[in-house]
């Protein structure tokens, strides 16, 4: 794995309605924004039945593209503000990103790593 990559993708999965908290926390920690889409959780905290009917909890998935050196501080800000250290509140993880385009406000118009 290329250790000196420039960008990471932070994926945060929270209960529906909490994406705004994640976005706000990540922006305060240095991110430029994010993309939100909807999902459905099936973890141990989500399996609840109500009079025999299982309730499917809706989730929001937040994609935050961030410079590698900011990843740690942004992910810690998200954990703190969204309360991710509490079970059932959500999870966050970061993935390595190779090629990036369209981040005009962060870098040169089109940068391709390792070429």
């Amino acid at each position: 794995m290329n250790k000196d990559r420039e960008y990471d993708l932070i994926v945060t999965i929270v209960n529906r309605g909490n994406a705004d908290i994640v976005i706000e926390a990540s922006k305060k920690a240095g991110a430029q924004g994010g993309t939100v889409f909807y999902g459905r959780g099936t973890g141990i905290n989500e399996v609840e039945t109500f009079f025999g009917i299982s309730i499917q909890p809706e989730k929001e998935v937040v994609f935050t593209l961030i410079k590698h050196d900011l990843t740690k501080s942004v992910i810690h800000a998200i954990i703190e503000k969204a309360g991710l250290s509490t079970p059932g509140k959500g999870i966050a993880f970061a993935l390595p990103v190779d090629d990036v385009a369209g981040i005009t406000h962060l870098t040169t118009p089109c940068s391709v790593e390792g070429r």
Binding site: L9, G102, I103
Partner: peptide
Amino acid sequence: VEEFDLEKPDSGILFSIP
């Protein structure tokens, strides 16, 4: 990048993950 004007702000972004 050229076809969808990704160099322009607010037009979109692209990234890849192994």
